[in-house]
Structures are given as structure tokens and as C-alpha cells.
Nucleic acid binder design. Structure first.
Lengths: 242, 242
DNA sequence: AATCACCTGTGACGCCGGTCACAGTCGGAT
DNA sequence: ATCCGACTGTGACCGGCGTCACAGGTGATT
């Protein structure tokens, strides 16, 4: 584990603040936020929320990604989306005071700010700007959910869904990588296992393996550990009908 | 068409107001709402929003239900949810200023209040309570979407999904019907066609027909026109695993 | 009564992908 | 080096359901 993991203690000094939907607040609100939040750092695999639990509060992701999923009684589970830094988690539960809709598990070392349920509700009441931010986040959640529904309900085949997923990842390619070797190649960093990809597209692990193998054989993607390269974006796009 | 369709012109006098998430506003905000809204009555089958169009504004459903769906480029479409009176439609589009996510089609004669995009944005800014209401509505949208994802992604079989759908309808049974004949029978009014049910659970019309036929043969439901009776709730529940 | 549009029911067929089973690979811990 | 656990690759099997095709049914319009 990296020891030099930088912790952002002070929201007022956070360098990312302006780029983040929720945190880009007027100074006064920020000061309040700073006073009610509790910052923690979680290792990979930590559970921030558990589906079905009553909401203790919300989390703001500062750094790191988290997997948001829901599970059936039989143990089958499906990934709703991957939350990026800046997102607020546990909102629906907090606002409607119902149990958490989903389970949140960190995918990597993650810093998050926790705000307790009562504090959060007061915070919203006091600062009207905040509820707009909340609405923005909820909008985003809806859009992701609708995309997922379209993927699950309107795609015909699993290859199509996986192609769609890869292409969506390709829209946020590795920024911190060296210069792309070939003009047409897109490098992405994939930290999900095939099992998780299967949960994302609602299929079985074996099928994901087969489909990826197929893509590789056809020379559409190249997989080297966690860095994948899309070598034939066109072909993947042709597979996608939606 | 009924001519005696009651129109609610005045939000301040609306008898339903308090029961409705969005409309239950303080007097001052209501006056403003009253001044910026435009009331219309639409026949069954009217399209309030079209997926992909840029948002002209939002609609508040006063009476009547509407089907919210999204369509793939191939013409296959899926129903996201059925909107009930009191709901606000077109929110995500209005807030994020992106094209409408979905198509909204009335399922019956429907009264709706339209608020233009700029008016709505100003309205939110001015009255902080409104953005809380908006957040509530968005929360509801998310919850419906997540339920849909669970249904699409975690159910094993189509019969299971249909059973789930029937049971969810049974939670809001016919209120305006006579006394339930048998204690165990639940009467529901179904205005969707089998085709639409198929779109709801992400399957084909034929399969819906077969499954319903099967349920009927087993004596679990009775179908007489638009009123269906669930005669064996237990059996349907046993089919559902989630 | 006749027509038409739109639902609903049903058979036949074939394929996608879920499931089971097991082998191979990789990386980290001892 | 060696072990172990977690992940990945692959073959065999088969059943659910999508698709095509067509036959009733039902209600509105004339």
C-alpha cells in the first residue's frame, strides 16, 4: 500500500473542488461542510453502504472509485454504476429516509467524507445551493440508471453489451499515460474482474471470458494485465445498435 | 370521450395538492407556480416529451397516467415506469439541459401543467423548497429505475418478472371498486396491452401471452377485459425470488 | 352487418447464453 | 521454490425464449 497517499483534509483548500459537482459551493457553505464532515481513508474492498441498512448518512468521494451494486436474495448481484471522485453516495436513502438502495464497495484506496444523516438534512435546509447540487447528483444517478436499463433491456446480445461498455470506458481513456502509440489505439485501465464485468452487463462470467477472447482473436482489443487497448474502435461500434 | 372531465385550473384550490409530492408548496410559491404554469388536457396517446428532443420545459401531471419509455435505434422500446398524477416529468433534461431521456405518452385522458424551461429554472432558484421537491421526485425516479434494473438483471425467468409486475400492481389495487368479493382476491385495473407489458419486463409479446395463459390455466389470475383479479397471490410470490 | 384495425392465442423451430466441470495462469505470502 | 487462492479460458450440454407465421377475438366506425 502506498504510504504517500495524499489526504485532503481541508475542503476549502481542495484543489479538485471546482471540478466537482457537489463540492463547488460558496465559501460559507463550504465552511459549514468542513465542520460537519468526517474524513476517512478506506482500503480497497471497503463497504461504505450496505443495501438494506437504514441510512446513517452520506458519503462524498474525494479520491478513488467505488462500485455500486445491488443483490438478489439468491446472491446474484448486478453493478448499477461505478462512482467517480466527487460523487455523493447514499442520497436517495438519506432524502427519503429509506434503507440504502445499494451496496457501495471501494474499488481502490479511497478517501471519503462522511456526513451524518441529521447534519446533512440540516445542511440542505440551510443552504439552498446545496439542494441544487443534490439534484444534479440525482440527475446523474438517473441518467446512469437509464443507460443501464437500455443496456439490459434493449441490447440483443452480450457481445453488444460488452462492446458498449468498453466504448463507454474509452470515452474516459487513461489521461496519465504516455503518448498513445498508435493514433487509433485507445488505452484504458480496467480494474474490474471478469466476474464484475459480468455483473455489470447482466451475464455470466464464462460468457464474458468467451466474448473477450473473441474480441481479442479478432484483433479488436489487446489486454495486458489491467491496461487494455482498443485497437479497432470501429468494429466495436458496428456491434452496437442502440 | 367524457365531456365532464374536471379541469383543475387553480393550483391554489386543487383538492389533491397536499397529497402530491411536488405541488404541496407554501402559498407564496404556489402563487408563483400558478402564474408560470400553462394547463392543458391531452387525449390518450398524446406525446408530452419525445426522447432526444431538447427540453422545452417540464410537465406536472395533474390527473391521468403516462407511460415513460425509451427506444433503441432499431425500434425496440422499453418502459421505464408509469408516471402517476402528481409527478414531475422532464426533470433530468431540464436540470442538466440535455435532451429528454425518454418519451412520455399519456395512457388516458390527462391534465398536465407545463412550465417552460427558463421559468422553471428561475422558479427553483427563487424558492428553495422547490428544489427539495425536485430532489424528492428525482429520488423516486431513481428508485423506480433501480427496481427496473433489478427486475431486468436479477430475475431468472420471464414468468418471475411478470409475477413481480402483477404483485407490484396489486399493492395499489382498485380503490374505487365495490367490496372485494373474496377476501383473498385482489382486483386491479390494467390498461396496458400485452405488447406494453412485454416492453415493461423486457421480453416479447408472445411470451407474455403464453405466461399469462399459463397463470390463468393454473388459476392464479382471472382476466376479464381490463380488470384482472389475482386469485392466488401466494403462488405468484413463490415464483419471485428477489 | 360488414369492414377494419388492433389486440390476443398458439404451434414450430432454432440459437444464445446459462450452467457445470475442470484445466491453466498469475501474483502474493511463507 | 512452493503453495494457495483468485482469476481466467474452454468444452459440452440443453432449455428458455425470441422469432416467424398465422388463426381467432373484440370493439369502433361506416
Amino acid at each position: 500500500m502506498a504510504y504517500n497517499f495524499p489526504i485532503i483534509e481541508d475542503c476549502l483548500r481542495c484543489t479538485f473542488r471546482e471540478q466537482r459537482v457537489f463540492c463547488d459551493l460558496p465559501r460559507e457553505a463550504l465552511v459549514k461542510l468542513q465542520s460537519i464532515k468526517a474524513t476517512s481513508v478506506y482500503p480497497k474492498g471497503a463497504m461504505l453502504c450496505l443495501e438494506g441498512q437504514s441510512p446513517r448518512g452520506i458519503y462524498v468521494l474525494c479520491t478513488g472509485k467505488a462500485k455500486i451494486s445491488t443483490t438478489s436474495s439468491e446472491g446474484k448481484s448486478i453493478i448499477l454504476r461505478i462512482a467517480e471522485p466527487g460523487e455523493v453516495l447514499g442520497l436517495t436513502a438519506a432524502l427519503s429516509n429509506t434503507p440504502y438502495e445499494a451496496t457501495v464497495e471501494t474499488l481502490e484506496q479511497t478517501q471519503a467524507n462522511f456526513i451524518s444523516h441529521p447534519d446533512f438534512l440540516r445542511f440542505i435546509q440551510e443552504y439552498p445551493e446545496v439542494s441544487m447540487k443534490v439534484a444534479k447528483q440525482l440527475t446523474h444517478n438517473c441518467q446512469c440508471a437509464y443507460a443501464e436499463i437500455r443496456s439490459l433491456g434493449l441490447s440483443n446480445s452480450v457481445p453488444e453489451k460488452i462492446a458498449k461498455l468498453l466504448l463507454s470506458w474509452a470515452e474516459h481513456p487513461l489521461k496519465y499515460t504516455g503518448p498513445q502509440k498508435k493514433s487509433q489505439e485507445i488505452a484504458i485501465r480496467v480494474t474490474l474482474t471478469q466476474e464484475e464485468i459480468a455483473q455489470f452487463v447482466g451475464t455470466s462470467r464464462e460468457t464474458v471470458s468467451r466474448v473477450l477472447g473473441d474480441f481479442r482473436k479478432k484483433g479488436w482489443v489487446r489486454i495486458k494485465g489491467a491496461t487494455w487497448s482498443i485497437t479497432n474502435k470501429r468494429a466495436l461500434e458496428n456491434l452496437v445498435t442502440t
